[in-house]
Design a binder for these strands. Structure first.
Lengths: 340, 340
DNA sequence: CTCCTTACTTAGATCGATCTAAAATGTTTC
DNA sequence: GAAACATTTTAGATCGATCTAAGTAAGGAG
């Protein structure tokens, strides 16, 4: 029994079966907790597994069964804490089901994203949670449909033929604009940044619509640099507009962090000289002073919801495509006041 | 040829071979870019792959070859941007080699970490980059050695029988203490946080040694709450010590962010009323004002180095264990001044 | 014309699990 | 005691690649 075993190669189910004096098939049934095996046999096999230090080989199993227990997640930028929180939600929910998450960073590059999707197909992932890179052609959704690969779009969308989970950015903008308007602001700027994609567009459109519905001019739209480190230095852009804004709504938490620092550098007091509203409400915004009034989109929750949606999609591929939009909430803190 | 194919099942290498009028073996050689196949045959097979939309099945291949092309990464806390940057470095290097990263969050729990390691073994990962959870028993390293699984410890270590990549925390502490001492500070506090683990210990010890070598009292060691949101509110702890510090060195960027906010809330001016030094120099520290003087440990670089070390270890399992320690650098900005 | 290279090509075993269909065993019924 | 039935167990095919060892064809040397 213990002669030629444990040479150095992996312990296989056949080894376990032999050690327990049953067939490979029976050992396999024990593994899968089938009610078919007798309790005496079951415990004998389980003991054998423990004795030999057996490790289940998912890869081998997957060859027969059409389930790899692997989920892919593709995000445009890993170092952005917003996506880190998103991933944390995804990993949490996927991990609970015993599956595993393959992580990949597209760097917001369409070709790189294509390569990553290909790589994930080769690994036989059961599905992918994708935050599509900017400028992803909508045709990608048809390609993915052809592949028969379950995919949930998260935060951004390229087509509503695929599931989508995001936040109600337009509603968030309305909350921000309404609040500033209620304080008496009329000259409100939108501080944008990053490449154009659906979430960008929805925020910009949401801002414009909200402004128009208050009969305000939505014309002050300023593009800030992509890198956090450069945003503060570009703060002066705010004061080079035709009409000087009394309040600023930020595209996301990076812009909020950057402008908060930049305004301080200009010797301005946030909330008195200029009102500032953040977006996304990521944890590290908590460290800004004065405390930042901010629209929260709940990245962790969105991650969790996208994971759940993907699991449902995998279980039931014929469901019609769904669209889940998380509510936003305005957290009023200290960065806004009446216009000077 | 195109009769019974594409039923709905996956296109296999055998399909490709038939379509190109060669054997499965030849098709496999083409796949692996073997120089053995004639160029005419090669292009015929490649054309067939394109025609049929063939997707390589790594899972099947791995059954024969002992390589899954999957690397595991286990970190204690995904939402901490420090670990997000680390992961970004890991993913970058691993991704370049065509491999893929499985991500997992131990939540700093030893049992959860054990479960994740087990899951990764079942997935047949080629190796794991592990930031060990606090209180991980050193015996884990023997267990891992028994498994024959290549593992690199990152940031924290439980045993030097396994490879380790980290930063020279003690040197970083020395840089911080020396700098503050050169400004005339004598009452320097260390603001700690989080559970005790090797990196914690090295920082605390480094602080103590650096203080002693300057003939200063290293006794002011304060433990702050784990959650970023609660640190600011605990700032008062700084002023409840027997001797009131004139400068504070932070355990990591979270403490720095929290105290920076908390000191502001107390009406104190950083750099004038109290000097503050951060640790880790994560990107979001850039948004703090006054700009934070900080010791950088370079998480992205550490991630990259750990990935490279793991790849080398996989290629050559018999190498003696190595220890790679990244240099730290003190970035002098605006958060320190002479003691009041 | 045979033998030896060189350059390709391939049949069939193999990796470690699952699944199907059938066999073995034990129990009850008539 | 045979038939019918329920309960366990199993042999052998299978998933999709790789690998070994052997085969074929063409060209060159003798």
């Amino acid at each position: 029994m213990s002669f030629d075993e444990r040479k150095k190669s992996r312990v296989t189910l056949l080894d376990v079966a032999r050690h327990a004096n049953v067939s490979r098939a029976t050992a396999s049934l024990v593994l899968r907790k089938s009610p078919l095996v007798g309790s005496e046999t079951r415990s004998r096999v389980e003991q054998a597994m423990r004795d030999l230090g057996y490790v289940y080989n998912i890869g081998a199993a997957r060859l027969r069964v059409e389930r790899s227990q692997i989920i892919g997640a593709i995000v445009p930028n890993l170092t952005n804490p917003f996506f880190a929180e998103l991933l944390s939600g995804i990993e949490e929910v996927i991990g609970e089901t015993g599956k595993v998450v393959i992580l990949a960073n597209s760097g917001d590059k369409v070709e790189r994203q294509a390569m990553l999707l290909q790589r994930m197909r080769e690994h036989g992932v059961d599905g992918v949670i994708l935050c599509p890179a900017a400028r992803t052609p909508p045709a990608l959704s048809e390609e993915i449909a052809d592949w028969g690969m379950p995919v949930v779009q998260v935060l951004r969308h390229i087509s509503f033929d695929m599931d989508y989970v995001g936040a109600d950015y337009a509603a968030g903008m309305r909350q921000a604009v309404d609040y500033l308007a209620s304080l008496g602001h009329e000259k409100i700027a939108f501080a944008a940044h990053g490449p154009v994609q659906s979430a960008y567009q929805e925020r910009v459109d949401g801002f414009r619509d909200a402004m128009l519905s208050k009969a305000l001019d939505p014309g002050i739209l300023i593009q800030f640099p992509t890198q956090l480190g450069e945003i503060a230095g570009a703060t002066h852009l705010l004061f080079e507009q035709e009409t000087r804004p009394t309040a600023v709504i930020c595209f996301n938490h990076l812009v909020a962090l950057g402008l908060s620092a930049g305004l301080h550098d200009c010797g301005l007091t946030i909330g008195r000289d200029l009102s500032l509203i953040g977006f996304d409400d990521v944890a590290d915004e908590e460290a800004i002073r004065p405390k930042l009034t901010s629209v929260s989109t709940g990245p962790v929750t969105i991650g969790e919801m996208s994971a759940r949606l993907l699991l449902e999609r995998i279980a039931n591929p014929d469901l019609p495509p769904r669209r889940v939009v998380n509510d936003t909430a305005l957290h009023i803190r200290q960065s806004c006041g009446r216009p000077a």
